[in-house]
Every structure is written in C-alpha cells, then in structure tokens.
Simulated assay, not measured.
Amino acid sequence: MRKSAGWSWRILVVIALISLLVWATARIQLVFVAVFLGLVITAVLRPLVNVFAKVMPRGLATALGLLSALAFVGGLLTYVITSVTGQWESLSEQFSTGIAQLFALAQNLPFGLTITEEQVSEWLDQGQTWLQENQSALLDRAAAGAGSVFEVFAALALAIFCTVFFLARGNDMWKWFLNQLPAKVREKWMLAGGVGWYTFSGYARGTVIIALVDGFLAAIILLIARVPLAAPLAVLVFIGAFIPLVGAPAAMIVAMVVALAVNGPVNAILVGIGIALIGQFEGHILQPLVMGKQVSLHPLVVALAVTAGTLVAGILGAVIVIPIVAVMWAVYAKLRNLDPPMEDLEPDARAAQP
C-alpha cells in the first residue's frame, strides 16, 4: 500500500504538471507557435549558415541564410501564381466541360441511382438560401478570420525574429542557460539538450527533404497525366507532407478531384495510383533513409499522438506533436538506466500460463 500510495501521488504530480503546461501553452499559443517555427527554421538553415560562417562573420552568414530561404519561398510562390494565371482561362473551360461530363455520368449510376440536373439545381438553390439566412454569422466568422490572419503574420514575424538570434547566438544562449543551473545537474541537461536538438533538427530537416521530394515526384506525375495546375497541386502535396498520416492523403484527394473534373475518371484513378505509390516510396525508402534512427517511433505511437494532438489543438497539434513526442522519448532513452532485457520465460512459467 505504501508503494502504491507513493506512485499514486507522483503520477498525480506529473499529470498536474502536464495539465499546467498544456494550459499555459494554450494561453500563449502565439508565442509557443512562433518559438516552435523559429526552432524549425533554425534546424533547416543551420547547416547552410555554418557553411557561410566559415568564410564570413556569423551575423552576415545568418543574414545570407535567411535571404536565401526567403528567395526560395518567394520564387516558389511566384512560380505557382504565374502557373495559375497562365492556365486559368483554359482551365475554366476544361473544368466546365468536365463538370458537364460528371453530370452525364451521374445520371447513369449503377444500382439504379441517378442525380439529375433538377436535383443539382435544387441543391444550389438551397445553398444560396442558407447563405442568405446565415449572412450575418458568416460575416462575423470572416471578421474573426481576419484576426486569425493577423495572428498568423504576427507569429511569422516573431518566428523570424527568434530565428535570427537562434542562428547567430544559439550556442551562447544555451551556455548562458546551463550556467544558471546548479553544477551537479549541468551534465544531464547537456546530454538531454544535445540528444533533444539532434532529434528535433533531424526531424525538421528530414521532413523538409521528404516534402520536397514528394512535391517534385507529384509534379512529374501530374505533368505526365496532363493535369492542369500541376505546380500548385505539387505545392499542396509538399505542404501536406508536413502533416503526418492525413496531410498527404488529403492532397491526393484534391489532385484526384481536379483530374476527375478535367480529364475524367480514368485519369483521376491513374493520378491517385501515382500519388499512392509516392506515399509507399516515402514510407519504405525515404523515411528510413533520411530520418534514420533520429526519429524512431512505432506507427501506433504516431497514430495515437497525431489523434491526441488534433483533438487538443486541431491541425496545429497534428503538425507539432510528432517532434515533441520524438524529443521526449529521445531524452528519456538517453537519461534512463536501462536494465538487461528480459530472458525467455522459464519452463515452469510457460506451463503455468493458460
């Protein structure tokens, strides 16, 4: 009973601390997101800045690294925008033709099911009526969305501000933090910080590399299938790769819908098969090759963590939960005292089993 009581109050303290951490993070969510993004950008750009720092001062290397990243993102956005504007006229015509073909197919569905133009027109009228009845609520949501957009830009600005200091003075900041701790615990904190940053940076860089490869392969498949807006859809696949389990399938569905509306069901199926093959290539080759042992989590742990993160903080929680869990496990595995592995059960123990 004494042992059970001892473990019980310790577990209650741990639960209270986790609850306090979740509550505090929710209260300062913008700051947390900004610091997290700053760490991600730092992990991705740090190798490039280290290369620049060999031939120039650290501050100048940091500025050049950030400018290189901004140039890459700006060029990607410019390419996507020009692709959309260049194909918009022809795409609208193809899309209208594809929608008409889908309506024709819908009128001859198997098992006696049909969707007529009158039904579609009725649904559109109902949707228009609903919009008119809920106009004020939608305007309120739009105003709230404008505030969210402002928060997004504020978080990005703060993230870039944090990134500048993490890249330029990160080592000095870490040393200052260690010097504030008692000398007897500094070694453990150094070990925990080292393995934590190794895991986090490996996950961040690996995710970016895998996302780039996924987007590039998706662009090739979409171009071969002659799907319009191949560049924006490839960028969507790139973004979806950052959301574990659900991001890539969601991007695949969008690409299939575009291919279905423009080129018909056969083309949509081919696009779906191609992007599914990309997912298999990522899971069985890219992930082990790029990530290695830096992020070694069981698929069941990933699924449960993503679900829990989504329930707590939506899409944001699904994005950030995996690196957090990976860092926590890496730190625990580094600091624990691992007992020898359990041998096979003795013959008597096996015989006693039902």
Rank of each mutant, 00 (worst) to 15 (best):
226 R>K: 15
136 S>Q: 14
137 A>P: 02
292 G>L: 05
4 S>C: 08
29 Q>F: 15
268 A>P: 00
285 I>L: 15
113 L>S: 08
279 G>V: 03
153 F>W: 12
177 F>P: 02
42 T>Y: 02
96 S>H: 08
156 L>E: 01
132 Q>Y: 08
104 A>K: 13
159 A>T: 05
54 K>E: 04
219 A>S: 07
24 A>G: 05
330 A>W: 00
141 R>H: 14
84 V>P: 00
49 V>P: 00
229 L>F: 15
276 A>Q: 08
128 Q>G: 07
3 K>R: 13
5 A>M: 13
245 L>Y: 14
318 A>W: 00
237 V>K: 02
35 V>E: 00
169 R>I: 13
282 E>V: 04
175 K>S: 07
310 T>Y: 01
194 G>Q: 07
139 L>G: 10
215 G>N: 02
166 F>Y: 12
337 N>H: 14
191 L>I: 15
251 A>R: 07
284 H>R: 10
140 D>L: 14
95 F>T: 07
163 T>C: 07
320 I>Y: 02
223 L>G: 02
271 V>R: 05
264 G>M: 07
254 V>E: 02
328 M>D: 03
157 A>D: 10
95 F>H: 06
25 T>P: 01
282 E>T: 09
303 A>H: 04
299 P>E: 04
263 N>C: 11
57 P>W: 06
110 P>G: 09
63 A>N: 09
